[in-house]
Design a protein around this nucleic acid. Structure first.
Lengths: 217, 217
DNA sequence: CGGGCAACCTACGCAGTAGTATGTTGGCTC
DNA sequence: GAGCCAACATACTACTGCGTAGGTTGCCCG
């Protein structure tokens, strides 16, 4: 009944051990070489097996990507949405907390999020083909819905006088940009304990968010 | 004697009209479909001609990319370096001015810069092959030198007490991230006059830089 | 203990793509 | 006006890479 079942169409569904191993390997491969630059054999090599294993769980390369994008979008939304709607938070604290959670997901789920952020724009511009629906459309919509979360919080904060953002939409893009760019320079290392990762996320979030705060003393 | 001549190796050099037309078309194509996702025929289609034209100016697809990356790196450096070393500027004004110039280049030279920023990391991780030199190595070094410019200005500002940046390197990454991410969401449109573009760049730069400024009143 | 199915592997067909080898054409020079 | 070369086009070749068809193996269930 889940859409994931609809995706796999008869093949083993999510929650499946083997399936998520394939997904992880694919995410790692795509993150390194890019989607178009990765072959199914590359993914299989990463798994230490052959293409047959990948095709056992996914009908095509595009379906693998779709699953990665979906997982990435979901994880981000589930981590940040609760903060966006948590009662009793001041706008500045809310924004900063959202930024920390966002950054944490990017760092902990690094490969998946890197693929999501770097590949979605290759998939966005397909609306030009008339009559043919874009199979990734709902993922683009999920991304838009997620960003809408940020725009709402930003707009509320401006109204409340907590933020100095003459152009709130641009401000959101600046904040998300500072955070998202971490997928370009950050790679998890064995040295990164949970504590270190969190401090890095907090530091980055602080720089990102302080740009829109109102400072008057 | 220029390295561009060394690149083309007997073929028409830069400054050549036809060559830059090919480069522009390639940048546009790479920006849309990604490097690996673009075929030489795609580039030729964008030009309204055939592969022969592309191969007349470039020996291979990788050389085309190399030229785009080189152009992107150079343009950015030439726009920002003068500001970084201009005498008589306060740290905050210097950083903001650099950010504006940086953003302006990303917007005006959109395709080339998008390709540069989204493709260089695919080319960075090639040091793993021992014995074989990475042909893109000097471009990675140019990128590093450019970022060093920012780190220097940031460090100076911290020493001067103008910036509140406990981790200056991270601060640079936050600032550049906010700016660089514009290559993901911004596409030039006919509506964008020079004036509009500049205001957008200034707005973005303001959010990006204010995150590291010291605010005490 | 035999049948069935999940979880793979092997071998192949075929489409697309980088690069090459060989024209062709228009302008410029001497 | 004959030759020459830049600036392309055309027609291939060789290879890579997606997807498929048909095995094989081991476990589980009755």
């Amino acid at each position: 009944m889940s859409e994931a079942t609809a995706i796999s169409q008869g093949r083993p569904g999510p929650g499946d051990q083997g399936r998520s191993a394939v997904l992880d390997a694919a995410a790692k491969t795509f993150a390194r070489r890019g989607y178009a630059g990765s072959s199914m054999d590359d993914i299989a090599d990463e798994l230490g097996s052959t293409k047959g294993r990948v095709y056992h769980y996914y009908r095509s390369k595009a379906r693998v990507l779709e699953d990665i994008l979906l997982l990435g979008a979901r994880t981000l939304h589930e981590a940040v949405a609760p903060v966006a709607s948590r009662p009793g938070l001041a706008p500045a604290a809310r924004l900063e907390e959202m930024a920390v959670e966002h950054a944490l997901v990017l760092m902990r789920q690094n490969d998946v999020q890197a693929v999501t952020l770097h590949t979605i724009h290759l998939v966005t511009g397909r609306a030009s083909e008339p009559g043919e629906a874009n199979p990734f459309r709902y993922i683009v919509e999920a991304r838009d819905a997620y960003e809408e979360l940020w725009r709402t919080v930003m707009a509320d904060g401006v109204v409340a006088g907590a933020f100095a953002a003459p152009d709130p939409d641009l401000a959101v893009r600046a904040v998300l940009g500072a955070l998202n760019w971490s997928t370009v320079w950050y790679r998890p290392s064995p040295h990164d304990t949970d504590d270190r990762t969190r401090r890095l996320a907090e530091g980055l979030a602080s720089y990102a968010v302080r740009g829109v705060l109102r400072h008057d003393g």
